[in-house]
Design a protein around this nucleic acid. Structure first.
Length: 230
DNA sequence: GCGACAG
DNA sequence: ATCTTGTCGC
């Protein structure tokens, strides 16, 4: 069992952890089938140290939910841009270990290697859980990109330090793009491909959207903690 | 020193 | 991230 606790960490210490974990990142073409994909997200009340984490399992490519793991946890590390994992990964790990079966690929709300030190939450979590992961964010953290054409499915490379670290992906016509990047066990083209296949009728790909949805309902007391099969 | 800054 | 009313467009 892997319990993460970043409560007493300083940002300086967190930076060192990111640099250490960076050596364990594996970026490569996907070499496994995806039958179950998962979405991970966090929800919390403003100014509260209680975070609600959730992971939803989804059959792929049908995009039908099969179950979700929800857990509540106290977290002291604040939100600091570039250090999201130190606030959210601990609770996510709780939800992860509560899963009766693991997904083939995890989609995390946030960035993968499209990060100042190449260690966004999707990479951070993927390395620690030793599981394939990609990041899907609503906003850029670092890097530059050309606006993708307005038609759904178009994408442009996200470049940071002269390196392609991800992509801006137009999931739907005439809506803002989402930013995807590999986290662990995936590469940029493979990440764009699979996320594209996860788009339903909304801007956010289903794993991210459904995870956000269920964890929010959990925070509001509409669904119970633990694992629920659907 | 000045902006930018995942959730 | 969360809260919130109204407005625009398919």
């Amino acid at each position: 069992m892997l319990t993460l606790n970043y409560d007493t960490l300083t940002v300086t210490a967190a930076t060192q952890i990111q640099k250490d974990l960076r050596d364990d990142i594996v970026i490569q073409a996907r070499n496994f089938p995806v039958n179950i994909i998962a979405g991970a997200d966090i929800s919390f009340n403003k100014f509260s140290t209680t975070v609600y984490a959730g992971i939803i399992l989804i059959r792929f490519p049908e995009l039908i939910p099969i179950g979700y793991s929800l857990i509540k946890k106290e977290v002291l590390f604040p939100y600091v841009p570039g250090y999201l994992a130190f606030r959210e990964a601990s609770a996510l790990m709780g939800a992860w270990e509560q899963l009766p079966l693991k997904p083939d690929l995890l989609v995390v709300d946030g960035h993968g290697i499209a990060h100042p030190r190449g260690m966004g939450i999707a990479a951070h979590f993927g390395v620690l859980a030793k599981t394939p992961a990609v990041g899907c964010a609503k906003k850029v953290l670092c890097g530059k990109y050309e606006e993708p054409s307005s038609e759904k499915g178009s994408s442009t490379p996200l470049i940071f330090k002269n390196e392609v670290v991800g992509a801006a992906l137009r999931a739907k016509n005439a809506v803002k793009p989402v930013f995807v990047s590999p986290g662990y066990g995936m590469d940029v083209p493979g990440t764009v491909e699979i996320i594209t296949q996860c788009v339903g009728r909304y801007r956010l790909p289903e794993p991210t959207r459904l995870a956000h949805n269920i964890v929010n309902r959990f925070r509001l007391g509409e669904v119970p903690e633990g694992y629920t099969e659907v």
